[in-house]
């Protein structure tokens, strides 16, 4: 028997649940959240970035969180949305990777497989009307091929050369369309960093849940590298000149 069994509304089943606490409800809103993730393909692999903030509503609650997870030697996962749900998913993926390690048969789980597995979990959860409140970007190099895929709480999936979640969908994607789409094979690491910093800077200026302490990950044939937290140079002096937004 599970030693940790607490009687909480969501653990109750059947008439008891309806009698004592009203109808059974599932997650209807995220609580502690991370904002955008931005990712795109470049010449040597894929690059991804996310800041280190986990907000509690509008409060900048946890400012040293890592929202980029190294799944295995070829795959990285970027997360936005509910951090608790992410941690649950993280443990799930770790279990999968532990199983792979135990098999010890030289058949590594590739990025595509990780993406497929993650998508199945997300779609399964939403179909049970009990979603994990996240948007994920999976990136990596699978058999020499760069892989970048998106999946969210609805189980929606798509793959593209450049991707973003959250506010990044509105603010970073236009930049990526212009600077990455169709050029993924030419972009050097240096340029990729510049593009990424520009995206993250715009997000920082406009997205009130963004934070100027972020990490960048790259996956190349050599493996996964996640940077230490760093900050972007910003210039707020012309903020005064912006008028007409209800100020």
């Amino acid at each position: 028997m599970d030693p940790v069994s607490l009687e909480l509304p969501h653990t109750l089943r059947g008439p008891q649940a309806t009698a004592g606490y009203g109808p059974t409800t599932r997650t209807t809103q995220p609580i502690v959240t991370g904002t955008s993730v931005v990712a795109f393909k470049y010449k040597d692999g894929i690059m991804m970035a996310a800041d280190c903030l986990a907000s509690y509503g509008s409060l900048a609650r946890f400012r040293n969180e890592n929202r980029l997870m190294k799944v295995n030697e070829t795959t990285v996962l970027g997360v936005s949305g509910d951090m608790g749900d992410f941690q649950h998913m993280k443990h799930k993926l770790e279990d999968v990777m532990t199983h792979e390690y135990d098999m010890d048969d030289g058949q590594a789980l590739g990025t595509k497989s990780v993406y497929k597995c993650l998508s199945n979990i997300m779609y399964g959860r939403r179909t049970n009307i009990n979603p994990l409140w996240n948007s994920f970007i999976v990136g990596g190099v699978d058999g020499g091929e760069r892989v970048l895929g998106y999946v969210d709480l609805y189980g929606t999936t798509y793959m593209a050369d450049s991707l973003a979640t959250g506010f990044g969908k509105h603010l970073a994607v236009p930049i990526l369309r212009r600077r990455v789409e169709g050029r993924a094979d030419e972009i050097t690491e240096e340029e990729a960093v510049a593009i990424m910093d520009d995206c993250m800077r715009v997000l920082l200026y406009r997205d009130c849940r963004a934070f100027n302490k972020l990490r960048r990950a790259k996956v190349t044939a050599q493996g996964v590298e996640i940077s230490e937290p760093y900050s972007l140079a910003t210039n707020w002096s012309y903020a005064e000149s912006i008028v007409g937004y209800g100020v």
């Binding site: 599970d2 940790v4 532990t98």
Partner: peptide, 12 residues
């Protein structure tokens, strides 16, 4: 493996 997994999922 099941025991190791089970312990880990309870106690991390």
């Amino acid at each position: 493996r099941d025991e190791a997994h089970n312990y880990h999922s309870v106690y991390k």
